[in-house]
Amino acid sequence: TKIIYHMDEEETPYLVKLPVAPERVTLADFKNVLSNRPVHAYKFFFKSMDQDFGVVKEEIFDDNAKLPCFNGRVVSWL
């Protein structure tokens, strides 16, 4: 699974690849690859589809939650 993530106000996003199927990747999986960053200091928002509003940034805080996936990749903002 490819996860593209944006940090603070930085213009260029980062990319990490996880050896987990897109439909199975969790917030804990993502946090594990960010071990060099203080993950407890961040809120995690993900590109998600809402039936009422369309594409939104959804906050996910449960480490066991599966991450929303679009075209085989996850897009996140920290």
Rank of each mutant, 00 (worst) to 15 (best):
T1R: 04
T1G: 00
K2Q: 11
K2D: 13
K2I: 15
I3Q: 05
I3L: 09
I3T: 00
I3P: 00
I4Y: 13
I4Q: 09
H6R: 07
H6Y: 12
M7Q: 02
M7L: 13
E9I: 04
E9T: 10
E10I: 07
T12L: 11
P13L: 05
V16T: 04
K17W: 14
K17Y: 15
P19H: 09
V20Q: 05
V20M: 11
A21K: 12
A21L: 06
A21I: 06
A21H: 09
P22T: 02
E23A: 08
E23F: 02
R24G: 09
R24C: 12
V25I: 12
V25A: 09
T26N: 00
A28S: 10
A28M: 11
D29Y: 13
D29G: 01
F30Y: 00
F30M: 06
N32C: 08
V33W: 08
S35P: 14
S35C: 12
N36R: 10
R37G: 08
R37P: 07
R37K: 13
R37S: 06
P38M: 09
P38I: 13
V39W: 07
V39P: 06
V39M: 10
H40I: 06
H40D: 13
Y42R: 05
K43N: 05
K43L: 04
K47E: 11
K47A: 10
S48N: 08
S48C: 12
M49N: 15
M49T: 14
M49H: 10
D50N: 14
D50T: 13
D50L: 06
D52I: 13
G54S: 15
G54M: 13
V55H: 11
V55F: 13
V55M: 11
V56S: 15
K57Q: 15
K57L: 12
I60N: 00
F61A: 11
D62M: 10
D63G: 07
D63W: 05
D63Y: 05
N64E: 13
P68Q: 02
C69F: 11
C69E: 06
C69K: 08
F70G: 05
F70A: 08
R73D: 07
R73G: 09
V74C: 06
V75Y: 14
S76T: 04
W77Q: 07
W77Y: 14
